[in-house]
Design a binder for these strands. Sequence first.
DNA 1: TCCGGACAAAGTGTATACGAAGAACAATCT
DNA 2: AGATTGTTCTTCGTATACACTTTGTCCGGA
Lengths: 227, 227
Amino acid sequence: MAEDLRDKLGAQHLPLRDQVLAALRTAIIDGDYLPGERLTEDRLAEDFGVSRNPVREALRVAEAEGFVVILPRRGAVVASPSSGTIADMFAVRERLEALAARLAAERASAADVAALRALLDQGREATQRQDLPRVAELNSALHLRILQISGNPWLSSIAKSLYLHVQWVFRLGAAERAPHSWAEHIQLVDAIESGDGDRAEQAALAHLDAASAAAYENAEGGYGAAH
Amino acid sequence: MAEDLRDKLGAQHLPLRDQVLAALRTAIIDGDYLPGERLTEDRLAEDFGVSRNPVREALRVAEAEGFVVILPRRGAVVASPSSGTIADMFAVRERLEALAARLAAERASAADVAALRALLDQGREATQRQDLPRVAELNSALHLRILQISGNPWLSSIAKSLYLHVQWVFRLGAAERAPHSWAEHIQLVDAIESGDGDRAEQAALAHLDAASAAAYENAEGGYGAAH
DNA sequence: TCCGGACAAAGTGTATACGAAGAACAATCT
DNA sequence: AGATTGTTCTTCGTATACACTTTGTCCGGA
């Protein structure tokens, strides 16, 4: 048993615990494991075809990242993001991405800007094709790229983590909302290219405000689970 | 062997891994383990008087928190914060604590303000006594309290983590710089009490700017290690 | 019926041992 | 000297064992 998944995972030469962590994260984000669901070590070990050790190590990190909650002597359960934390997450993201936009504007090379423009083009195209999953993917890619261009590793890693959680909440809320106006993205990249930090920061703030409003409205109904 | 430390740690009923993690963190922050130093599992297990399992789990979390770097098949070494990351950390902290100050101003209860005032008093007193360690401790307590009052768990946990790293860098830089002007703290608490979010945010920014400048100047000489 | 305690089951927390594989370093050989 | 080969250290993953908690169940008695 368990050979099937192990082979699938074991193809690469990454430590198993990292593969388990990645698999666990995506399983949670994709809703395969729902908020409140119990994650016993044995069960996860079997699901991923590994022994308890890699699972345990992955669980500790997942806890630190906020995807699971571990109760002493009781084990792990999938965390339950409440609608309160959506607002909290966006409040933090807004500050962080505004800073990222400013730094990116101040530091972006021509190649950086070109890469952003390329993403913008692909996004426009995907939007026309109504390929929503692809648009969402490009949306993430754009934001992550700006983070990277900012050159601040702390900013980058923290915002990346927040971004994952935002995606998680979105997935749970069934509504696959049409990703927020691509026009805002264009203004943001324009601002970054101009090298004007203030302008870039304002553009980021405006974008995040709009996204936050939409997200909050979308999630208002509640998104199941979470007892 | 190892019974001595185990007894010391095992007094409470927290999972061993958490105790190991806490001990590891403080050991790194206090400079007992220096940047670049190699941390083999066996060695840590012996140092803390536990088996390798809790150590491994603690190491993974410590890696996620940025205190150690794990090289596949090579093991863990204490991370080496460079002077570049000091500036990066302060850039993020500035945004985050500004937000925290604003939220705290908007949400602080009378009891919250009273608690802050109490810390302020103790700080003034400790400053007069020239009890620098105590002042540093109160300084942390004040910032952490404001974070907590902000009521945003994401903000709180992220900033807390950043704060630990800032302390770490400070400890490494031998100079136990006189903690930045307590007067700035008073202005910050005044602003929070007033309930004026803008004013609180400005006060936080001013404080962080000053602290950042001092820290950067202090660390400029370089603080050993960091290859 | 409802309460309370004994009892069993499940699962975590920790320790230990073992084998495989990678990395670093020393010794050896050409 | 330079390349190659071994040796050693250590991580990585597996397996196993066992104590201890928590939880749930069952049963007898008020």
